[in-house]
Amino acid sequence: MGFFTAVGRAAILYLGEMGRMLLFLLQFVFSALKPPYRILRVIKEMHFIGVKSLFIIALTSGFTGMVLGLQGYHTLRKFGSESALGSLVALSLIRELGPVLGSLMVTARAGSAMTAELGIMRISEQIDALDVMTLDPVKFLVAPKMLAGVLAVPLLVAIFDVIGIWGGYIVGVRLLGVNAARYFDGMKESLEFRDVWGGAVKSLAFGLIVTWVSCYKGYNCGHGARGVGDATTEAVVLSAILVLAWDYILTSLLL
C-alpha cells in the first residue's frame, strides 16, 4: 500500500506542477497580447538575453565548430571522403548542436539570472508590491523576458551556426588542408532549406522553454536565500532536461 501511496502522491505532485506551469504559460500569452505593449522592456530583456550572451555564444560555437572539423576530418579520412567535411559540420550544427548547445548556454547565462532576479523580487515582496499597485506582475516582469527569449534565442542560434561553420572551416580547410571550395560546395549540396527551417523552429521552441521554466521557477520561488538558490538550480536542471527531451520530440516530428 505504501508503494502505491507514494507513487500516487508523486504523480499528483508532478501533474499539479505541470498544470501550474501550463497556466503560467497561458497567463503569459494573454498578458503579452493585451495592450499596453511595453516595447522598451522587451528591448531591455533582449539586451540582457541577446547582446550579453553574444560573447559566450561566439566562444562556444567557435570551439564546437573547430572540434567538429577536427573529429570529422579524422573520421572521414578513413573513408577517403574528406570532401564531405563541410556538410558534416553544417548539418550537425544547424540541425542539432546549434539549437541545443546555444539554448543550454542561454540557460546557463541568462536563464539562471532571470530565475534569481524574479526569485529575489518575490521574496523581497517586490512582486506583491506591483500587484498591490494593480500592475500585473506577469505582464510587467515575465512577459518581456519570455518574448525577448523567443526572439533572441533563434538569432543567437543562427549566429552560433555561422560561427561554428567558420570554426570548422579554420580547422578543416586552413589547418588540415581540405579544399575550401569542396568544404562549402559539399555544404550547399547537402543542406536544404528544410534543415535551416527545422533549426529555427527548434531554437524558437527552446527559447520559449528556457525562459518559461526560468521565469516560472523564479516567480514561484520559495522562502529566503535558500528558496532562490533552489529555484535557480531547479530552473537550470529542468530547462536542460526539457530542451534535450523536446529536441528528440521535435527532431522526430521534423524529419
Binding site: M46, H47, G50, V51, L54, A152, P154, L155, L156, A158, I159, D161, V162, V196, A200
Partner: peptide, 9 residues
C-alpha cells in the same frame, strides 16, 4: 544584435 542575427539567419 538583431541585425547580426538576421544576417546569420
Amino acid at each position: 544584435f538583431v541585425a547580426i542575427g538576421l544576417a546569420a539567419l
